[in-house]
């Protein structure tokens, strides 16, 4: 199963990167989410898979009875999910504002910060 998840991770990453490389802002946003999911799965898989046994100690015991899923990657991913959601929302709103102000959703037409015809720096002291 690990093998198939590795393949799935690579599909996620490939799709995410491909979407991020498109010049449309919204597709880039989708790509970011997909890429984030892929990386979360990557961490999850790298921590080894255990079917169906959650890392929860049964009541009354001090340590789990049998092998359990690796809790560490889960803790890492849990924060990652929430943070990537926050980032996603922020970028979404940013893209929206950019669209409202510039009336553009293509990065090639958003050149306010680094315009292609910026003047040369002055040659003086």
């Amino acid at each position: 199963m690990d093998f198939f998840l590795a393949i799935l991770v690579s599909i996620f990453v490939g799709c995410g990167v491909y979407l991020l490389l498109s010049q449309s802002v919204i597709r880039m946003l989708l790509g970011l989410t997909v890429l984030g999911n892929g990386i979360n799965l990557l961490i999850f898989t790298a921590g080894r898979l255990t079917r169906e046994v959650a890392p929860i100690v049964p009541a009354g015991l001090y340590t789990p009875a049998g092998p359990i899923a690796n809790p560490l990657p889960q803790a890492l991913i849990l924060t990652a999910i929430v943070i990537s959601f926050a980032m996603f929302s922020f970028l979404l709103v940013l893209a929206f504002r950019a669209y409202q102000t510039l009336d553009a959703d293509n990065t090639n037409t958003m050149r306010l910060a680094e315009p292609p015809d910026a003047p040369q720096p002055p040659l003086s002291y």
Partner: peptide
């Protein structure tokens, strides 16, 4: 997938 592989917290959050 999280749910299937023993990560209910992740599954719910996701």
């Amino acid at each position: 997938l999280y749910l299937l592989f023993g990560a209910p917290d992740l599954a719910f959050t996701q």
